[in-house]
Amino acid sequence: MDYSLMNTAENTSQDVQKGIYETVREAITNGIKHGHARDFHIDISVHDNKLLVKVKDNGEGCADIKKSHGLRGMEDRIHSLNGKIQFVSSKGNGFAVEAEIPFETSVE
């Protein structure tokens, strides 16, 4: 597993941190369960006041993404944080989850 995390991403609210954690966890679970992935690249960064979360796997991928309970849960979670999310895949080329959340530092 490969990941990168900018220090500033840790300075956001606990709700956003929890949303990121649950989204990454679900992306990994789905990648293993449905795509038989063995390798994941996780990138969490801040750019232009947006927290960017990307999880890409090397699984089987799919030509037609069907939004099951897990994908809908990720959408609901990110949308509740006023963010956007997209799923990218093609047969034989893995699966990627890309989320963007407005970034505000927390002083908790």
Rank of each mutant, 00 (worst) to 15 (best):
Q86G: 10
P102I: 06
K33Y: 08
E60F: 01
I44V: 15
S90M: 05
G35N: 15
K33G: 01
E100L: 06
L52W: 02
S90R: 09
M6E: 15
A63Q: 08
N58Y: 01
G19T: 04
I42T: 08
E98M: 11
G70I: 03
I42W: 03
E100A: 07
N58M: 00
N49G: 02
L52A: 02
N49F: 08
E98A: 09
G92T: 04
E104I: 06
F103L: 08
G83M: 08
D57S: 04
Q14H: 12
I42L: 11
E22A: 05
V46Q: 03
H47C: 02
G94P: 05
H69A: 13
L81G: 00
T29P: 00
D39G: 02
Q17V: 05
N49R: 12
A63W: 02
D2P: 00
V24G: 12
S80L: 03
V53K: 05
K18F: 13
A96S: 15
K67W: 01
E108S: 10
A63F: 03
V24I: 15
H41K: 13
S45T: 13
M1V: 09
G92R: 06
F103C: 05
K67I: 01
G73H: 08
G61C: 04
N82I: 02
T23F: 05
H41F: 02
I32A: 05
D2F: 02
E100F: 00
V55L: 11
L71N: 03
S13Y: 07
N49S: 14
V97I: 15
S45K: 14
K54F: 01
V46T: 04
T105F: 14
N93I: 07
D43V: 02
T12E: 13
D57E: 05
I65Y: 04
G19H: 09
I20F: 09
Q86C: 11
M1K: 06
E100Y: 00
N82M: 12
V107G: 08
V107A: 09
D76H: 14
Q17R: 15
A99C: 15
H41V: 03
T23M: 15
E60Y: 07
A37E: 03
A9V: 15
H79A: 05
G73N: 09
